[in-house]
Every structure is written in C-alpha cells, then in structure tokens.
Nucleic acid binder design. Sequence first.
DNA 1: CCACGATCCTGCTAGC
DNA 2: TGCTAGCAGGATCGTG
Length: 245
Amino acid sequence: MIPNSTPEQVEAAVAGRTVEGVERRGKYLLLGLSGDCWLVIHRKMSGNVTLSGPDAAAARHTHLVLWFDDETQLRFVDPRKFGRIYLFPARAALDAFLLGRLGPEPLDDLTAAGLRERLARRRARLKSLLLDQSFLAGIGNLYADEILWEARLHPARSAQSLTARERSRLLDATQRVLLGAILRRGTSVSDYVDANGERGQNQDFLQVYGREGLPCPRCGRPIIRQVIAQRGTWFCPGCQRVRRP
DNA sequence: CCACGATCCTGCTAGC
DNA sequence: TGCTAGCAGGATCGTG
C-alpha cells in the first residue's frame, strides 16, 4: 500500500515531526509535516481516515496509526487495501506527482472558458471524462452520475458535441452537486465516515445513483442502469438524451 | 486519442 | 439456513 516508500521509511520519516497543515488535492489527502515532509493518503474505494482516542477499539484492516503527543491517533482503515500511502521528501516532489495526475479543482480553478477549452480537445464520452482525474480532479462515479443528471446530459455524449448552453449547464451542475455533497458532509452509500467517525447525509439526496427503476425526480420516467466507461451508470432516459427528442 | 479488459482486495447481499 | 455469483466510493496498465 506504499508505492514509493517502505513501512520502515514512513515510520522513520514521521517520528518526532509535527503536522503543520492539512490539505486536499483531488482525492489525495496531504499531511504537511515539519521539515517539508509530506505524507499523502488516497482512500480509494473503502478507506477511511479517522481521529480517535488511544482507547478506541482497533478496527479490522487498520494499516496505519499515527500517534500524537496528546494521545490522539490518526488511523487509516481500508478493508480492500486499494488505498495508498505516499511519502514525499519535499513539496516539489509532491507537486510533480500531483501535476501529472490531476486536472483543475472544479470548485476553485474551473472557469467557463477553461472548461470549453478542455472539452474541445476531447472526443471521449462525458462519463469517462468526468471520471478522468486529469480532466477534472476529485469527481468519482456517483458524483459523475449526479452531475450529468443535474445537467440533463446523457453520459455517453461526446465531449466536443456539447453546445455552449450545455457546457454552461455542465459547469453549473458540477459545482452545485459537489457543493451540495460537501454541505451534507459527504455521501455514505456504504462505509464512508469522516475524521470523527460520522456518516455523511448526501446519500439521502441522490437523484439517480443507485436508483434503478425508481422514478426520475424531474420527469417521472424510471431511472435506468447501464455500464458506461466500465462503471455502473445510472441516468434518466427521459431527460438525459443523446439527441434532443 | 479512446474503449475495454484485467488487476489489486474484502465484504455484503440478492437470488437460488 | 447456506452457498455463490455479482457488485461495490478507484486508478493503472496493457491491448487493439
């Protein structure tokens, strides 16, 4: 689970250091330690990062525990072991790693002109693009489906086929869906909990994801599920059409 | 450039 | 009740 280091090196690197800052870029959690050392965690499918007291029961599949002076523990628990822990000896090395993998932050760095230029260079289907972290950072399978529903766009539409109006809807939908999910402190469709062990609320507000057969909240047609871009994809065949009716 | 399959793992559940 | 096939919040690599 440590692609660019070893457990021994991680242990040696974190010992005695102070956490000076916590950042996020895409789906990567960045822990800035004293002396320009960076510990980076990606939760992938099933990982959770929590803070707990020293006496809290140890969950199965705990792979990393950071002990702080005040007895607090940061724990990384990941049953499927898809999660990854990286160690970078300097911010420059971390930035180089992220630069090659991540596109702009949808809520911070994305403009209408920026999105237009990025879409113009691509022919892929919208669903594939939204899942592509180098196109936009941080969007996963369920948010991709929710965004495309909100924007009334078919997941198999090709990027360069979008009209200016549709591009605008896509940008608005992306930001609205992500902001809504953040406001509700995340989507716990399964085991996700935040650092305090609290489940999010956004799973109770999903419009299409995981809702095959249920009526579209907008037009009432039953939601359908198809595999698109290798992933389960839920959308409304009534208001998300490849071509206008 | 793009689509797709395989791969890394464990746990849950729908269906028989 | 017990078994098993299928599916799951992700990303990478190789093939065509």
